[in-house]
Amino acid sequence: MEPWWQQPVSRRQFILRVGWGLVYGSLLSWAMATLRYMFPNVLYEPSAVFKAGLPGEYEVGTVTTKWVREQRTWIIRNSQGIYALWARCTHLGCTPNWFDTERRFKCPCHGSNFNIDGDVIAGPAPKPLFRAAVSLAEDGQLQIDKAQLENRPGKREGGTFFLPYKSA
């Protein structure tokens, strides 16, 4: 027996194979096109950028939770400046709560704990919390951009993810 690619093919067999090839080919391309159809091209989701008031309104050493309900963001000021943590657990996306007595964020869904830098101290979360980009808008207000996120130590403490601020 010859291997299949060396066996002679009659005209009838050839046409039959091409025909079946076309049938399966069109079914497959229809399936692929339908799969693509399921991916929307336009999203109607809220803007990721918001203004969070003047930097002087934030106290040193505190985690400000007033933006969580509207913007899902904590704003934290330390002695050097200001950064914003996106309040989305890196485990499975619930919103953790800040517990000031323990200085921890704790997630209600699977019990992950994070410290004030966003690093995981306990629970199943695999990665630190993400920080959002912080800048000063022209009117002097803080501008937070949740579309730009960073959680790698070394990169998250600088650049657009940290706003140095000392006065007041």
């Binding site: 969580v68 309900r69 509207e70 913007q71 899902r72 309040a87 619930c94 919103t95 953790p96 709560n97 997630c107 209600p108 869904c109």
Partner: peptide, 10 residues
């Protein structure tokens, strides 16, 4: 439903 606040525990 509130997409920013999770009940505790959930």
């Amino acid at each position: 439903a509130n997409p920013t606040v999770t009940p505790n525990p959930s």
